[in-house]
C-alpha cells in the first residue's frame, strides 16, 4: 500500500474542538479535533450513540455544532449561509436510508443538482449522469423510479447523485446499515473503487473489511469523544484501549 504515503498531505477538513449537545441535554460530540487530508479515506467507528453520525453531519452543516470550528477546503462553516451552501456544493453525502427523491426517476435524481446548482444544461447533466450511473452499474435503470429498485441499487444511485456535483469530499453515513446482506458488497465495491480513484472520504461504518482494505485512518469514538485513532492494521490488530478492544470483539 505504497500509495498511502504518496497521497498529498494538505489538509482539506479541519475540525477543532467541535461539540454538539442536542435539546434535552444529550452531549453527542465533545471537543472533537481532527485533520482530514486530501485523498485520505477516514473510517469512523464506534458503538451506536457514540456521536459518529452527528459528527459527520456537522461537517456539511446538517447539524450545527455548538462550539468549535470546522473549515472545509478553506471555507469556514459559520453563520454565513453562503459559506454553508458553498461547502455543501463541495461535499457529497450518502445516507443510511438513501433519501432518493421518490417522485423523480433515477436520471432526474442525478441530474437535479447539476442543473439547479451547477447550472448545467439538461444535455450536459444527462451525459455526466449516464457516465456516473454506468460507473455504479445502474445504467439500465435510468428511467426507473427509486421504489422500483432494490436497496443496493438505490444506494448506488445515491452515490452517483452525490458524485454528480463533483465533490471534493464524500461523506458516508452508515451507507450499508439498511441493506440486506447480499447487497452490501455491491455498494462497498463502488465505494472501494471511489477510494482508489483518490476521492477524499469520511465513512461512518461497521464494515471492518472495508476499513481494512481501503482506509488510511480509523477513528474510534465512544460517548462523543475520540478513544483512539490509527492505521487500520494498528487499530484492529493492536488496539491500544480497552474500550476499542471490547467493541471490536463484539462486532467481529
Amino acid at each position: 500500500m505504497n500509495h498511502i504515503q504518496e497521497k498529498g498531505d494538505d489538509v482539506i477538513i479541519t475540525i477543532d474542538g467541535v461539540s454538539k449537545t442536542f435539546d434535552g441535554g444529550i452531549e453527542a460530540v465533545k471537543d472533537f479535533t481532527a485533520r482530514i487530508r486530501r485523498q485520505q479515506v477516514v473510517v469512523i467507528m464506534g458503538p451506536s450513540g457514540s456521536g459518529k453520525s452527528t459528527l459527520l453531519r456537522c461537517l456539511n452543516g446538517l447539524e450545527e455544532a455548538d462550539s468549535g470550528t470546522i473549515v472545509v477546503d478553506g471555507i469556514p462553516l459559520d453563520d454565513d449561509k453562503k459559506h454553508r451552501l458553498e461547502i455543501r456544493q463541495e461535499v457529497g453525502m450518502v445516507f443510511q436510508s438513501f433519501n432518493l427523491f421518490p417522485h423523480l426517476t433515477v436520471l432526474q435524481n442525478v441530474n437535479l443538482a447539476q442543473m439547479r446548482v451547477r447550472k448545467k444544461s439538461k444535455a450536459e447533466a444527462t451525459a455526466k449522469s449516464i457516465e456516473l450511473l454506468n460507473m455504479v452499474g445502474i445504467a439500465d435503470k435510468v428511467d426507473s423510479y427509486p421504489a422500483q429498485l432494490s436497496g443496493g441499487q438505490q444506494q448506488r444511485v445515491a452515490i452517483a447523485r452525490a458524485l454528480a456535483m463533483m465533490p471534493k469530499v464524500m461523506l458516508f453515513d452508515e451507507p450499508t446499515s439498511a441493506l440486506d446482506p447480499e447487497m452490501i458488497n455491491e455498494v462497498l465495491d463502488v465505494m472501494k473503487d471511489l477510494a482508489r480513484s483518490g476521492m477524499t472520504m469520511v465513512v461512518v461504518t461497521h464494515e471492518m473489511g472495508f476499513a481494512r482494505e481501503v482506509s488510511d485512518w480509523v477513528i474510534f469514538m465512544d460517548e462523543g469523544r475520540i478513544v483512539e485513532t490509527g492505521a487500520p492494521q494498528q487499530i484492529f490488530e493492536h488496539p491500544g484501549q480497552e474500550r476499542t478492544r471490547r467493541f471490536l470483539s463484539q462486532i467481529l
Partner: peptide, 18 residues
C-alpha cells in the same frame, strides 16, 4: 415528508427555494 428529503437536497447544495 421525511426529514431525509430535506437533508438530501441540502447536502447536494440546493437552496431552500430549489
Amino acid at each position: 415528508l421525511h426529514r431525509g428529503q430535506w437533508e438530501a437536497a441540502h447536502s447536494l447544495g440546493l437552496s431552500t427555494v430549489d
